[in-house]
């Protein structure tokens, strides 16, 4: 059960990994949602808890991608992605609630900054 994505030298293994840890792990909730759709409400405390855990987990991954990036992003100094995120969030909440423009603002800081540095 400790076998990772890269652990086996076989072409099929990564696909099995994706099927079990990706497809099954997500569609189980969707299928359950179909069966339970008339029994639970979105306001119930249990679902609020479950959603908090899910939101925190995704937020943790986002923070990791920003603070400890891999690949092409890793070349830039750490302050740059942080400044870019601040620009995007600042634009969205301070200037205009437009997701598209806010992403553009963040990207302008990141790409502009790494071209200048």
């Amino acid at each position: 059960m400790n076998t990772g994505f890269w652990s086996l030298d076989a072409t099929w293994w990564p696909y099995v990994f994706i099927l079990v840890a990706g497809w099954l792990a997500t569609d189980i909730w969707r299928f359950l949602g179909v069966f339970l759709s008339d029994r639970l409400t979105e306001e119930s405390e249990a679902l609020i808890f479950v959603r908090s855990v899910a939101t925190a987990l995704v937020a943790g991954v986002i923070a990791k991608l920003i603070v400890f990036p891999g690949g092409a992003l890793a070349a830039a100094p750490m302050a740059l992605p942080l400044a870019a995120v601040a620009a995007g969030m600042g634009f969205f909440w301070g200037v205009r609630r437009n997701l598209f423009l806010a992403i553009l603002a963040a990207e302008a800081v990141l790409v502009g900054g790494s071209l200048l540095l």
């Binding site: 759709s37 479950v50 987990l57």
Partner: peptide, 10 residues
């Protein structure tokens, strides 16, 4: 991480 799909589907 995908528990949110349950309330969404429901």
């Amino acid at each position: 991480s995908s528990v949110r799909l349950l309330p969404m589907t429901m």
